[in-house]
Nucleic acid binder design. Structure first.
Length: 346
DNA sequence: TACACGTGGTG
DNA sequence: TCACCAAGTGT
């Protein structure tokens, strides 16, 4: 089973930007950065963004010596922005406590900000060939099928970790980990597993009984609540647009947005206008912009202010937006208003 | 433990 | 259009 898996990996592995060529020891910092980026983010997205990021921050010292603002700018569009904050803190810890290098023990990795059980194990295995098996969503699914565990998806990690742990021992534990993840991404997919192409089908209890598609069981979904707001667009004669910076301790913390009323229940126009950044008049625009966050949907109506209205805040020319962190929501609103935002790395 | 936390691709 | 979901972590 182990050798069949590795043989398949050697023959079909993708040349992803963070992967060292076969037989070459990867740069542990690059592995760490890639694993943090890959948390709940697709390999295709990370593949586009990773090269520029490590070029910009090639070492822990380079990232630790940059401002959080610079890191957030480089992280734009990747989502889960707390990861960028954690990575910044992580780099500073590496410089302060580990001589600017990534430690090679599981315990030391696990103690770093932003590295949980999965990522610490992944870095230990992939960068240092430690005999540990990181269990991510792919490995959990692959393992649940191999072992025939008909449990809900959010309960399979522990039994899979126990059942597959022996695979981590022996040669090339890092490649075993990546092979299982690669198998989950390419063959043992969530909805349409290609069991007929699977290199370890002979060892799979779910495939043997034709149940692969139904394992693991899907947990039931709850309805996604809707919140509403009104965003205010004010543009000066010189082209500058009024923005504000979100506080550090909220979602999208430290990032740039249009002034808006609080996100919440549906409100009347007058209630929204009470939160406008200037007296007005304001011209409500038709339609709304919908943006889906992880756990709620935000519906944004837009109002355009009259040129010449006095307001204080963060006035930025569109060209200046490349130097500040702009989340996708703000980008979407500006696009609706006909403002194109420059963006690196997309 | 359950929930908060972003975004883009996909069928 | 829309639900699903992807190399999870912190609280």
């Amino acid at each position: 089973m182990r050798s069949a898996l590795l043989a398949w990996y050697d023959a079909t592995r993708r040349a992803l930007p963070w992967r060292a060529p076969p037989g070459v020891r990867p740069d542990p910092w690059a592995v760490l950065v890639s694993e943090v980026m890959l948390q709940q983010t697709t390999a295709a997205t990370v593949a586009r963004r990773f090269p520029l990021f490590v070029q910009r921050f090639p070492t822990p010292a380079a990232l630790a010596g940059s401002s959080l603002e610079e890191v957030l700018v480089a992280w734009q569009g990747l989502g889960y922005y707390r990861r960028a904050r954690s990575l910044h803190a992580c780099a500073q810890r590496l410089v302060a406590e580990h001589d600017g290098r990534v430690p090679d023990s599981l315990d030391a990795l696990r103690a770093l900000p932003g590295l949980g059980a999965y990522t610490a194990a992944a870095v230990a295995a992939i960068a240092f060939d430690r005999p540990v098996l990181p269990v991510d969503g792919n490995v959990a699914r692959v393992g649940a099928r191999l072992l025939g565990l008909a449990l809900p998806a959010d309960r399979v990690r522990a039994p899979v970790a126990a059942g597959l742990a022996p695979l981590a021992h022996g040669e090339r534990p890092g490649d075993v980990a990546q092979a299982l993840m690669e198998l989950g991404a390419l063959v043992c997919r969530p909805r349409a597993p290609s069991c007929s192409c699977c290199p370890v089908r002979a060892y799979c209890r779910a495939a043997g009984s034709g149940r692969a598609r139904d394992i693991p069981a899907r947990p039931s979904r709850r309805a996604v609540p809707v919140r509403s707001t009104m965003a205010f667009f004010l543009r000066r004669a010189d082209g500058a647009i009024l923005f504000r910076r979100r506080p550090d301790d909220v979602p999208l913390g430290g990032m740039i947005e249009l002034p808006s009323s609080p996100w919440g229940e549906e409100r009347s126009l007058d209630e929204h206008l009470a939160h406008a950044p200037a007296p007005g008049p304001w011209e409500p625009l038709p339609g709304e912009v919908r943006h889906r966050f992880t756990h709620f949907e935000l519906r944004v109506r837009l109002a355009r202010g009259t040129a010449g209205v006095a307001a204080s805040g963060l006035w930025l020319a569109p060209e200046a937006l490349s130097a500040v962190p702009v989340p996708t929501l703000t980008r979407k609103l500006l696009a609706r208003l006909g403002v194109v935002v420059p963006h690196r790395g997309r």
